[in-house]
Structures are given as C-alpha cells and as structure tokens.
Design a binder for these strands. Structure first.
Length: 749
RNA sequence: UGGGGUGUCGCCAAGUGGUAAGGCACUAGUUUUUGGUACUGGUAUUCGGGGGUUCGAGUCCCUCCACCCCAUCCA
C-alpha cells in the first residue's frame, strides 16, 4: 500500500482532524441501469476503501430515481460485483426509492419557502428558456405562482392527476447563473411508470440533483465522492442542503477523475450497444471491461483491486495503459497457480529411439514458487510440441529446436531432430527425432548443452481441450465505435492438447500454461467431456515482442507548435498608468502591466505608495503577494491595510528581515491583521547576517551531510540549494540567504 | 471577454519555495530446465509555453496555449 495519501484521503483526514466529521461515511451509489465495469471497481475501491481506512462505513445505494431505465437484474449485478471485490456494505442495500417520501416532504418544504415552483412550460420551451452557455436564460411566467397554488399543483402531480410532462417542479435559483446547472434546475417530473421497487405508488420522481444530496444527508454520509463530470452539480448539491437548512453533519461532495483504459470503452451506453448489437457474447464476455467479464475471463478480485490502487486517484483526465492491468493479474497469479503444459498448435514428434512409455513425476511449481504439489507426466515415443518451437531456417537468436539445435522437453529428455517430414505443399507435418537416454531431467549425465526447454504433451495421453484466446476488443487506443473493433479479438482453438492431470486431478481453476500465459477454466462452458479454458493474459515474452517490434510504426511526434494568443489591448487609462509606472517609477514592464490592468491592485499600490517612497519593492509585494489575496476578496475585506504593507516594505528595505521572512510575515498579516513590526518582534524574526554565526551553522550542516559534501565537490552543483536550504531551515528561515549563499559557495570549494 | 476543471517521462502519479518520489512500459546485465519470475543497473539538467518575484520556482504572481465537463423532464 502506498505511503502517500491521495487527495481524497488527505481531505478526509483533515476533516477528522478539524472535527468537521465524527464518523467517516461514504457510499457507492450506482444507478441500476447497466452492468458495472472496472470504472465502478475504482469507485468501489475508493468508497469502501476510505471507509475501511478510517473506521467508518460505506453504504451500497441504488440510485434508482428513473423508473424507465432501471431493473432488478442490474441491482443483482451490482451487488455481486461489490461482494466479489470483497467488500461489505453496512446493513441492507439502500435504495433512493426508499427515501421518496422524505424527499417529497423536502420538496414541499422548498415550495413553502418560496424556493420551488411548479412550471408548466412544455419541454422544448423549458430548454429554450434556459438560454445558452453564453447567454442568460429567462424565467418562466409560471415562476410567479403563489405558494398555495404550487402546493396544490404539486399535490395533484403526485396524485397522478396530470399527464407526463404537463408540469414540473423546479427550484427557484437564478436563470442567469453562469453555471447552467443553477438555472432553476428541475426537481421532480411526472412519470406514469411502474417503478421496479416502489411499484405504482408514485406518479412523480425526483431528479438526480435533488435526490442525491438528500439521500446522502439521510444516510449520514460525510464524504460524497463522485466523478469529475459532477463538478458543476456541486453548487446545486450545496444549494439544496443549505436552503433546507440541513447544515449540521451534512455531506460534502468531492470529485475525482474517472478511470479510462486504452483499447476499450468504458461507458454504459457503449457497452450496452456492444452487448445488444451482438458484437460480444453478453455482459460477461471476457473481452469486456465489465466486472462480470473480467471475472469470467479469470481475473482475480485481488488483481483488480491492486490495479485500482496502482492507478491512483487524481483530478486529471487520464487513460491508463492496459499493460498496467495486465501486470497486476500476472503479478497476482505468478506466485499462486500451478504450471502445466498445453500445446495449442501441435506438431508431432516421433522419437525413433524410444520404446514403451513412462510417467515422470513433476512439480506443479517452479523453483521460485514456494508451493507443494506435483503430478505425473506421461511420456512415450509420440509427443506434440508447439509448432513455432521448431524452425528449419532459424534466425541467429532462436533458442528452440532446429535441424542443428537440440532442445530439452521440459521435465523430460533432450531431443535432437533427425528428419523433417513435409506434405506435398511443403508444410512441416512431423519430425523424427532421437532422445538422449542420459539426459533425463534431474539425472542428466549426457553433457549436452541446450539453449532452452520447451513445453510438450504426450500425444497418446493428452486430452483435447478448447482454448479461447482473447485479444484487445478494439484495435485503436481510443475507440469511437464498432468500426474500431478488432476483428481478431477472439480466437477459438478447438483442438489444443493438455496434459491429463489438469483435467483428471483439477489441482486448481487457474493455471499457467507453461511459456504461454495464464488460463482459467471457463466457469460457464467447461464440462469434463469438453473442457474449455480462457486465456487471462499472456506471459511477458521478450522473444515474440522482438519479432513483432519491427512491424510497429515508429511514432513520429511533430513538435507541438505553441501559438501565442493575442493579449487584450489596454484601455487608455490603463496605458497611461502603465507609462507612468515604467517611466516615472521605473517598474519593470511585467509588474507595471499587472498593476495597470488591475484597478483594485493599482488603487492599493497608489495608496501604499503615498506612505513610502519605495516604488519598486512595494510594487513587487503588491503584484505578487497582495494580488493573491485580492483574487479571493475585495480590498475592503482585507485584514491588512495599505500602510501596513508600506511598513513591511520598509523593514525589508532596511534589511531588518529578508524577503523570505517577509512572505512569512505577510501570511501572518493576512490572518491576523497585525502590524509587521509586531509580528517580527513577537516571533523574533529579525534576520541573521553575521557571517561568524552563519559559518558555524554551515559547518554543522556539512558535518551532518558528508555524502552530499562529497557529491558537491565531485561536481553536483545542484546541491548548493540543498545546503542553503538546510542552513535556512536550522535558523528557522532567519539567516540572511544572500550571506548564506555566498558563504556556502566559499566553504564548499 | 460564459462558467467549472486539468496539464510533472511513452502511460499513470507523488511532490510544506531548498538534491524532480514510486509504479507500468522500455532497456542492459545476473540467476533460471518457462525467452516467465526474482535481483541489479539505465532511463525528466526539467514540470504545457513565455515573462515576473526570489539568493533559490514544478511550487508564488501575470499572461498565453491545449484538453475535459456543463444548455436530458439521464445519472
């Protein structure tokens, strides 16, 4: 588990520490309208994981507010996904539909407060009235209805007295809000549809934005974690809770970036299209990124969870490389599963000097997997090897069987090719070979050196099995539709040959087929009469990669040309200010520019300047420090005054404090509004410039870091900053950095 | 001149103004009866671009650029 916390856990910890939150309560709130995919797994891992890490709990809640789309079969899929991943939800599964009565009451309350109204505009007009992203909307004429009228109408809506779409309940917020979600959002719509749980009780159903925050509140959720696309919805989330006065212990929403993986699709809509379009064989098709698909393919819950953990949680949209997922499943299975031999594309070998047959006891696990268990490998004069483990005209770095190169049959003997038999069209159909009697595995006295050991099966004892090979579902990294499907995503091998112990003894359900990959006994189609194995993932394999590498087109990346946009021209007044600042006050143009363009800043600057004649230093402080504070508030809200800033500049100019300390003092001024000189005095921040004192400290630091001194002397000059930093740290930032710098440079020479 | 987000290696992702973590991928070597695993090394003089502040900037300020989300009676 990684030491470093993700940003969500950082927030949660801060909330616990500040006392804002007593118990951490999260929830995984899917809408039961589709099968969960690995993106849901990430959300499950986050929500249940955080609850577990902070001794809280996590609810599984079906967000079932839209009766036209939802169904019980999806509820079951969701539940089993969470269980399969190994998490437990608190008490019973929750349903938003169970809260319908309370949510309805909250709606009434909002109406009574005059904060919600029944609108009777037709759908297209509502859309039209909403305005656009760049233009304000306008309010419906129905917004003026009286509270009584609204109450009566809403009651009738609930009672089913109106048709679908005839009326709608909306919040009364702001039709010209820059955030479009706030333009009188819809709260309730009429739906004469039977709900899969609530039945026919309701004719009105709450919208997501109204139901979700209230459901969180009702369940006592502390951290409502969702994906980035809900960032705009956070304002309504807060509006509803605040307007209803639901302040104590209320939930807060936090957003993270959803998971994307290349060569696949991750939206329920696209997944549904594939399933319904027959491009895949159901929701649990092993090529799908659904939990059911991964489960059927043979992925373990541990590997999925490890993957979710490894990709991290952040806010940047990203697309994770499938190889990261593949690493996780290999990493999980490698130390766990038995090694077994299976030939997918058989080439017959006849051992001309071998008679009879035998059974060779062989461990299921390689030397580096500390597990017990073995089976008997039948051996006779007829065996199968993999077709591409023989080459008649091999390249130099080919390690397997050739007419000139012997090879070991893993766990058995070394064989040498004697004759290559071909059919009329030149295909190799059989090899006649000799085995070395003295080369038996474990008691090899033959002295023959081979470059590799290949897998094989006894032709007579092997069992025919079906093996399903999966490749990426799409052939492009960011697929857009069925046109991007990979035509070869599924290869079915009907007649692969596997050693008998796998079928007869069933030592496990997941195996490593030696030298090929990890495979899983298909939980649906496998029968003893017709065993079926799914390929989970291939082994890493550096040989195959070398072969195919030459084919991959080298990426030619055109250097992105950075186009600079046009800077907005200054107004006449701004230009005049700019000229004054650069010409009269000798400010550099960047600082002058910033000041001149910001009327608040320039006003602040001018006022402070009237108290101290140090235009450049003052301008620097104002543009760089004061500007930050002014981004969040008006001048009138600042705790510090212009004259205090002048005082600050004064003690910087006269050398009382360094620039570094000035930042610290400024931060204190922002918080307390105290005079800078008082802060300096209270905290003893006067800078130390005495070279004698500073040299002593430098000596200490050097004594503590002999390695770095050495590194520095051998040329790593980046370390100068390290030493300066250390010295400053040990003086609490008070050492005069310029003196420190000079001294360190001299002393390290 | 709508608003809200995000830009650190090929892909993810850490990073209180003081030596640019880690994983995947890639690569070289050691071990190996899996071209696997394990182990050891190599992989960002630089953080979207340009300026500024500072002794010192991925971190602070200004500005430009790119990408994502928002105008379902979906969630």
């Amino acid at each position: 588990m990684s030491e470093r916390k993700d940003f969500l856990r950082t927030i949660v910890e801060a909330d616990i520490k500040s006392g804002k939150v007593k118990e951490v309560v999260t929830r995984f709130p899917p809408e039961p309208n589709g099968f969960p995919h690995i993106g849901h797994a990430k959300s499950i891992a986050i929500n249940f994981g955080i609850a577990r890490d902070y001794n809280g709990h996590c609810n599984l809640r079906m967000d079932d507010t839209n009766p036209t789309k939802e169904d019980t079969k999806y509820v079951e899929a969701l539940k089993s996904a969470v269980e399969w991943l190994g998490f437990e939800w608190k008490d019973d599964v929750c349903y938003t539909s169970d809260y319908f009565p309370r949510i309805y009451d909250y709606a009434i309350e909002l109406i009574k407060m005059g904060k919600a109204y029944v609108d009777s505009l037709p759908e297209d007009e509502i859309r039209e009235y909403r305005g656009t992203v760049k233009e304000a909307g306008k309010r419906s004429k129905y917004a003026d209805r009286t509270i009584e009228e609204n109450l009566e109408l809403f009651e009738k809506m609930k009672n089913g007295e109106f048709k679908d779409g005839e009326h709608i309940l909306r919040a009364k917020i702001d039709m010209s809000a820059a955030n479009m979600k706030l333009r009188d959002p819809l709260l309730y719509r009429i739906r004469h549809v039977e709900h899969f749980r609530a039945g026919k009780t309701w004719a009105v159903y709450p919208m997501y934005d109204f139901a979700h925050c209230l459901s969180d509140y009702i369940e006592g959720v502390s951290h409502s974690i969702c994906t980035l696309e809900f960032e705009n919805n956070r304002d309504i989330y807060n509006w509803v809770l605040e307007t209803l006065g639901l302040t104590p212990e209320r939930p807060y929403q936090h957003e993270f970036a959803r998971l994307g993986i290349n060569y696949t699709v991750m939206s329920k809509r696209k997944l549904l299209e594939l399933v319904e379009g027959g491009q895949v064989d159901g929701w649990d098709d092993p090529r799908l990124p659904t939990i059911a698909g991964y489960k059927r393919r043979g992925y373990t819950p541990e590997s999925i969870l490890a993957f979710c953990d490894s990709v991290g949680i952040a806010k940047a949209n990203s697309m994770v490389d499938v190889s990261q997922l593949e690493f996780c499943i290999r990493d999980d299975l490698n130390p766990k599963v038995p090694r077994v031999m299976c030939v997918l594309d058989p080439l017959k070998i006849t051992l001309v000097n071998y008679e009879g047959n035998e059974e060779i006891e062989t461990s299921y696990y390689p030397h580096d997997v500390p597990k017990e268990g073995s089976r008997k490998l039948p051996f006779s004069n007829e065996i199968y090897i993999e077709r591409d483990d023989f080459m008649q005209n091999p390249p130099k770095d080919y390690f397997r069987l050739t007419p000139e190169q012997s090879v070991r049959l893993k766990g058995a003997y070394i064989i040498t090719c004697k004759e290559v038999i071909k059919d009329t069209s030149g295909n190799v159909i059989e090899i006649k070979a000799e085995y070395s009697k003295e080369s038996k595995s474990g008691s090899d006295t033959s002295g023959i050196k081979v470059k590799s050991a290949i897998h094989w099966v006894d032709a007579n004892a092997a069992i025919k099995v079906e093996v399903r090979l999966y490749d990426r579902l799409f052939s492009v990294e960011a697929p857009e539709g069925v046109a991007d499907l990979n035509a070869n995503s599924l290869t079915v091998i009907k007649d692969a040959y596997i050693e008998p112990a796998v079928i007869n003894e069933k030592p496990d359900e997941r195996f490593q087929f030696e030298r090929q990959g990890y495979f899983y006994a298909d939980p649906v189609d496998y029968t003893d009469a017709k065993p079926v194995f799914n390929k989970i993932v291939g082994l890493k394999g550096s040989w195959d990669k070398k072969k195919t590498k030459t084919e991959t087109v080298p990426k030619i990346r055109a250097k992105k040309e950075q186009v600079d946009g046009e800077v907005v021209a200054m107004s006449d007044a701004q230009t005049a200010l700019f000229t004054k600042y650069t010409q009269e006050l000798k400010l550099n143009s960047e600082v002058a520019n910033t000041l001149a363009r910001d009327s608040q800043l320039s006003a602040f600057y001018e006022e402070a300047l009237s108290e101290i004649n140090s235009p450049v230093s003052l301008a620097n402080i104002v543009t760089n420090e004061v500007a930050r504070e002014l981004k969040q508030m008006q001048i009138s809200e600042l705790k510090f005054s212009t004259s205090q800033i002048s005082q600050l500049v004064k003690i910087i100019d006269d050398g009382t404090i360094s620039n570094k300390i000035a930042k610290q003092v400024f931060q204190e001024m922002v918080k307390s509004g105290d005079n800078p000189s008082k802060i300096v005095e209270d905290k003893g921040l006067v800078q130390i410039s005495d070279p004698a004192i500073i040299s002593a400290i430098i000596n200490e630091v050097m004594a503590k870091n002999p390695d770095n001194v050495e590194k520095f002397k051998t040329g790593n000059t980046k370390l100068l900053g390290f030493f300066v930093g250390q010295v400053l740290k040990s003086t609490g930032g008070k050492a005069n950095p310029q003196v420190v710098n000079k001294l360190v440079a001299e002393m390290l020479k």
